[in-house]
């Protein structure tokens, strides 16, 4: 079977499903289009669930007037900063603990404790410490990203093949060269494997932080709309966030392809 055609069929179906969902949404919420199913008042469905056309036009206004860009930019910046800081610190601490067993043994219970703590709870505290600006959101994202990266680096260093390590030593590597040419690449492969996860969590940290108190960002837009019972804007915000997350995920996938060339992937043959 032609795989190109299969994937085109797949795309068509995916679009149809979205269109179908929106149609159902529209039909069930548009006042007086259907006899009331559940609510006694015909406007109540729209009040609780919004209306797709309204939601889309809200999105359209945000983009055409340009008012959304400032918020998107803030959320993006928070996500990127949280991701970068969390990854670098996770990498450093992970390498350090994996390479010095004494430190690992000493800190083990604390790491377990901090990791099992529901860290979203920290958001209000960060708000107090770092104010309502970007810093508190970045801090929340960092606490989420750090542990993912940390555990993967830790694992990556421990999984380094014994023979590869011995080989590098025999070939003359100093301790620093071992770190740079053996431990870090091995750890990085695990970090990349968790890239989707950590970018996703950086994003969650940013949005949740904004939602709990801020003056800018997409999370703030949603918070504001909820304050005025503007359900259509809430849904519009969610829609924008979803699209944004998909774009981020796509970028991660591209980065992964570039950086993980050396790893075997299944199905690398080309069909002719």
């Amino acid at each position: 079977m032609n795989s190109r055609r299969t994937s085109r069929h797949l795309r068509l179906w995916q679009v149809l499903i979205v269109a179908g969902l929106f149609t159902i949404w529209h039909v069930t919420t548009h006042p007086t289009l259907l006899p009331p199913l559940y609510f006694d008042n015909p406007n109540k469905a729209a009040f609780f669930f919004g209306q797709p056309l309204e939601v889309l036009s809200r999105v359209w206004i945000w983009f055409s007037s340009g008012s959304i860009y400032e918020h998107l930019w803030v959320t993006l910046l928070e996500t990127v900063l949280a991701f970068a800081i969390g990854t670098v610190s996770g990498l450093v601490v992970g390498l350090w603990l994996a390479l010095s067993p004494t430190a690992a043994a000493l800190f083990d219970p604390y790491i377990k404790a901090v990791n099992s703590m529901p860290r979203v709870i920290l958001a209000p505290i960060f708000g107090v410490w770092f104010g309502l600006g970007m810093a508190s959101k970045v801090a929340l994202g960092v606490t989420l990203v750090f542990f993912i990266v940390f555990f993967n680096v830790y694992q990556g260093v421990r999984e380094v093949s014994h023979t590869v390590l011995a080989n590098a030593r025999v070939l003359g590597a100093s301790e620093r060269q071992l770190l740079r040419h053996v431990y870090v690449p091995s750890a990085m492969s695990w970090v990349f494997a968790s890239l989707h996860n950590s970018v996703g969590l950086a994003f969650v940290g940013a949005v949740v932080g904004e939602y709990l108190g801020s003056s800018r960002g997409v999370g703030y837009l949603i918070l504001q709309a909820e304050g005025t019972f503007d359900i259509n804007s809430v849904f519009a915000g969610i829609l924008v966030l979803t699209a944004f997350a998909l774009v981020l995920d796509g970028i991660v996938t591209l980065a992964e392809r570039r950086l993980m060339l050396w790893q075997p992937r299944s199905g690398e043959t080309e069909r002719i």
Binding site: S161, T163, V164, A166, N167, A168, V170, L171, G172, A173, S174, Q177, H181, V182, P185, S186, S189, W262, Q263
Partner: peptide, 27 residues
């Protein structure tokens, strides 16, 4: 001494060429 291991010992994240150069780079 140089050592040719019984099991796989190449660095999987380096190309064949980079695997051959690595000893010289260490030096």
């Amino acid at each position: 001494s140089g050592y040719l291991f019984q099991t796989e010992a190449l660095l999987p994240w380096r190309t064949a060429l980079d695997n051959v150069t690595i000893g010289l780079e260490f030096r």
